[in-house]
């Protein structure tokens, strides 16, 4: 990997989460999460099913308001910003499942990506089809009729073309063929090398840790452990088997 080694101490964090709590209705699912992600790094957030990883990403991207604590991007707390303002300031979040508009065509989906960043549709199309040639032949097709993996490619293309500063990826590899997954992780590494900050949420430890420069394990709405990828790989194994 071409990712430069950076130690958390010298680089200011691009993303800091401090004491975040969040709940659905009356049920609290995040019980005070603390996490700092240095700029230009790929940080892997691991954890078993239902740990609250996706919930944390919704909080960071402004879709859910935390009941306590704050999220800081760069040096600004972003508590009050709406999702679209956050997106315009350079936060890109690819949600788990379908990050696409099913009743729009592939091309129309790509047109929506142009809301952020000054790209033309043409440029967005070129870049997307360059990375995912499969999508080129499907530009007029309704996105909802694409195969599961094609939908995931389309969703991820938003991260590639909008030039985000902070990138949140929820279960990036879900539904994708091994070959594509390997390519995507390589791409994630390149993005980080360009100075972008990536927070990866994955359940599969091994793949995520190949590109990560830091990692943490979340269990039951709390960060259980944080450290280097290789440490976390061993730790995660125990967590999964015990939980």
């Amino acid at each position: 990997m071409t990712v430069p080694e950076m130690s958390p101490a010298t680089v200011p964090p691009a993303l800091a989460i401090r004491g975040v709590r969040a709940s659905y209705g009356r049920i609290e699912v995040l019980h005070g999460v603390d996490l700092t992600v240095p700029a230009g790094s790929v940080f892997a957030l691991l954890g078993p099913n239902g740990a609250g990883k996706s919930t944390l990403l919704s909080v960071i991207s402004g879709q859910m308001r935390p009941t306590a604590g704050e999220v800081v991007i760069g040096d600004k707390p972003v508590g009050k910003l709406s999702t679209q303002k956050l997106a315009r300031t350079g936060l890109c979040s690819i949600p788990e499942g379908r990050g696409i508009f099913p009743n729009l065509t592939v091309r129309e989906n790509l047109r929506i990506w142009t809301y952020r960043g000054g790209l033309s549709v043409k440029a967005v199309e070129e870049q997307t089809y360059g990375t995912f040639p499969r999508l080129a032949g499907r530009r007029g097709q309704l996105a909802g009729t694409l195969s599961g993996g094609e939908q995931q490619m389309l969703a991820i293309s938003r991260a590639l073309v909008t030039d985000p500063k902070v990138l949140l990826l929820d279960e990036l590899s879900m539904g994708l063929a091994p070959l594509i997954v390997a390519e995507l992780y390589e791409l994630v590494g390149t993005l980080a090398a360009q100075g972008k900050t990536v927070l990866l949420v994955e359940q599969f430890v091994t793949t995520a840790l190949l590109v990560a420069t830091g990692a943490a394990i979340m269990v039951h709405g709390k960060i259980r452990q944080q450290g280097t990828p290789s440490d976390m790989a061993t730790a995660a194994h125990g967590v999964y088997l015990s939980s």
Binding site: T206, T207, L210
Partner: peptide
């Protein structure tokens, strides 16, 4: 070439 990739994929690839 079509699917798995020729590199030595680590066990957890999916």
């Amino acid at each position: 070439t079509a699917y798995l990739g020729t590199g030595s994929p680590p066990g957890g690839t999916r």
